[in-house]
Amino acid sequence: MTRAATNLAPEHAPKMARLSLAARLEPWAPLMLVPALILAGWLSIASPSSWLTLTVSGLAMGMMIFVIASGMTLVFGLMDVINFGHGAFVSFGAFVGVSVLLVLTGMTGAPSLVLNLLAVGLAILAAMAVTGAMGFAFERVIVRPVYGSHLKQILVTMGGLIVAEQLIHVIWGGEEIFIGRPEMLKGSITLFGATLEKYRLVAVGLGLVLFLAMRAVLRGTKLGLIVRAGVENPDMVQAMGYHIRRVFVLVFVAGSALAGLGGVMWALYQEMITAHMGMEIMILVFIVVIIGGLGSVEGCFIGALLVGLMQNYTAFLEPKLALISNIALMVAVLMWRPQGMMPVIKAK
């Protein structure tokens, strides 16, 4: 028996190799891209106040794109579903939210931050409720029959997007709608000589809170563990006793509701909404989802900030390049990491 005991597997205490600084920093490289881009912006923009304005604007834009893209990346990672219809939830969210704000002009027009934020909060809740319910129906009717077939998913969800856009024309008419920001979110503050729009600061704060909340759910709750495990190996999650389909529907609904929330944020950012705003923003959302690494919320967050900053910096430095700057960013990231910055390891 003693002899048998010596045959047992040794306790493999990990032996740590002495890695070079570069090798130790390598896994953290994506995290450093945002500060690196901000620094590059600082070096290339001569005026510090313009740089600060552009940085806050870029971060605000990035946060909004993150809110929209986060649900999509999880749906993509969890069930391998490419949902081109995600943009419909952005547009619908914006129209529902703006309609609520137009009703609540008494609250939005009052010079009270509490009332203003309450109005925006109600608009967001209404938008999320409607787009969440739409997401539930969308998953049932449009997505469920085409699981496992990417080509069909692209065609069918694209069709869903077109139908949703036309539905907006039917309900709200074909014209764009202009929406002013609530009274206390109008205007800007001056910091170090830079003009910072109040609303953009609110958007940055809201995006950050959402990211931290999402991270806390994914890292700290059992539901989060099931989602993360399901992105890697849904079959095994099922064999361990969890109904991955139900979790998927929940994630789809939550992702749609977040897109609706992003739509309201975007509407107040642009101060104008159109039926096809969702489709337009989807180009940036796809870039973010791809460079972040499919299924990765952290990667999506970093990718969104990079896209937002890049867009704002290049629009200032070389407006003609603004359109292609994000495509160039995607190409550069994919040449560096073909699976995206923080890919989720798939079991398949």
Binding site: K222, L225, I226, R228, A229, V231, E232, N233, D235, M236, V237, A239, M240, Y242, V344, I345, A347
Partner: peptide
Amino acid sequence: GIFADLTVEENLILA
């Protein structure tokens, strides 16, 4: 069927 992205502890919590 190990979940590579989850820690050893998280793999067991899920089980």
